[in-house]
Write a protein that binds this DNA or RNA. Structure first.
Length: 275
DNA sequence: AGCCAGGGTCTGC
DNA sequence: GCAGACCATGGC
């Protein structure tokens, strides 16, 4: 990776492979909007940024060295070598095709609470509406950063609210789950530190103490919010794809990075015409 | 108009 | 353990 600080912007190149669009559009995050082709605006923590990719060059607008190092390099996990990972997991024909098709996807390092909350909202829902609910959640209860952009509200704030307070979100039956998650994390019943530091099975069990978090949402939270690259969220698409591609289960050499394999298969099954 | 959406809970075998 | 109804809401 090559990083150049030019004027007010930060320019990144030589991350191979990387597709900003595939990464932000693959259903792992819900707070990015595409302004124009390959140009996105989003919020991470209390930082707002416009990012554009043209060929191999990614521009982080109005971003100084310190912010890039502290926020964006970590968020996109630019130090992780995806070529090496693909070498390890894309050994058979199917994974080679899927990995080749979705090669620009990277797993983002997102905030744990934000992913927990977002994937509770995702259940029995579609990406467009998930984004709408998350936006209203931030607009209503987050702190302003700059005009039009708020932080994701923290769990202590949400824990003080009632179901009626959440009505403007129009999140339906999920509102009570959002509250339960915020309350249990806020009062220590569910310990995010413990989730981060225990084994995969224990971490999953801890998350599933929250009403509204089942097997799939727990795996999403672990993969996207706790950097557990071995987590393998199974939604309807993946189940369909697995039944056809790997009826006997995921190949052994995929398991260490099952979450990345999952992204390749998911993207391939959902958008490729040859699937 | 009616189906479905990156599911989970609750109930009944 | 496993199947099936039900859950709110909106996009298509």
């Amino acid at each position: 990776m090559k990083v150049i600080y030019k004027g007010r912007d930060t320019l990144v190149s030589g991350v191979s492979p990387f597709s900003l669009k595939q990464t932000l559009d693959c259903g792992q995050c819900f707070r990015w909007d595409e302004l124009e082709e390959n140009t996105f605006v989003g919020v991470v923590g209390n930082t707002v940024c416009k990012i554009q990719q043209i060929d191999g060059e990614v521009t982080f607008f109005d971003t100084d060295k310190q912010t890039f190092e502290k926020v964006w390099k970590n968020y996109f996990d630019f130090d992780l070598d995806y070529n090496k990972i693909r070498e390890e997991i894309c050994k058979d024909d199917i994974m080679k095709r899927a990995g080749n098709y979705a090669s620009g996807i990277r797993i983002l390092k997102q905030d744990a609470w934000e992913t927990i909350c977002s994937f509770i909202i995702s259940q029995n829902n579609n990406i467009k509406r998930i984004k709408g609910i998350v936006k209203r959640l931030c607009d209503t209860f987050g702190d302003p950063i700059i005009e039009g952009y708020n932080t994701f509200p923290d769990y202590n704030r949400i824990a003080k609210l009632s179901i009626e307070d959440l009505a403007p979100l129009r999140s339906g039956f999920r509102a009570k789950y959002i509250l339960d998650a915020a309350q249990k994390i806020s009062n220590g019943e569910v310990d995010l530190e413990r989730v981060a530091n225990s084994s995969y099975d224990d971490a999953k069990a801890e998350l599933m103490k929250i009403c509204g978090i089942g097997n799939k949402v727990a795996d999403c939270a672990l993969l996207y919010g706790f950097y557990r690259l071995e987590a393998f969220p199974e939604d309807v698409w993946i189940k369909r794809a697995m039944a056809r591609l790997y009826p006997d289960g995921l190949p052994e050499n995929c398991k260490r990075y099952a979450g990345i394999a999952q992204q390749y298969i998911f993207h391939y099954a959902r958008t490729s015409e040859e699937f």
